[in-house]
């Protein structure tokens, strides 16, 4: 349920969940697929939420689970947040946990500068 594009030159990977709703129904699958990526040493990720119009508490839990797994050895940022996703990030303070960017380019740019 994720599409990935690896940018070898920049040492990062863009992960795009291809679901409209990231919820209790699919959050575990999402988390497992992203963790499988981390295990392949991709630990600088841009999570592109362009296709996700709704995220529930389990979806948030999955994102945080991935973040915990990365820990200090890598970085995870998000981009393309729909307004309801933004609202969920705000109410759960995830806007303070994840750096959010307007689009993939802005997210890549930011990661590049931090490298």
């Amino acid at each position: 349920m994720i599409k990935t594009s690896v940018h070898e030159d920049l040492g990062l990977c863009v992960v795009k969940p291809t679901v409209e709703r990231l919820t209790a129904a699919n959050a575990t699958t999402f988390k497992e697929e992203v963790i499988a990526l981390l295990d392949q040493k991709h630990d600088r990720l841009v999570i592109d939420l362009a296709e996700v119009s709704f995220i529930d508490s389990s979806g948030i839990g999955a994102l945080v689970g991935v973040l915990k797994r990365v820990g200090t050895r890598g970085e995870i940022v998000v981009c393309n947040l729909a307004s309801s996703v933004q609202q969920m990030f705000r109410i759960t303070r995830m806007d303070r946990v994840f750096s959010a960017y307007r689009d993939v380019d802005a997210a890549i740019q930011a990661l590049k500068e931090r490298a």
């Binding site: 945080v64 705000r90 109410i91 759960t92 303070r93």
Partner: peptide
């Protein structure tokens, strides 16, 4: 206006 959930972080 929001706050961290419990037992997440």
């Amino acid at each position: 206006d929001g706050g961290f959930p419990v037992a997440l972080l």
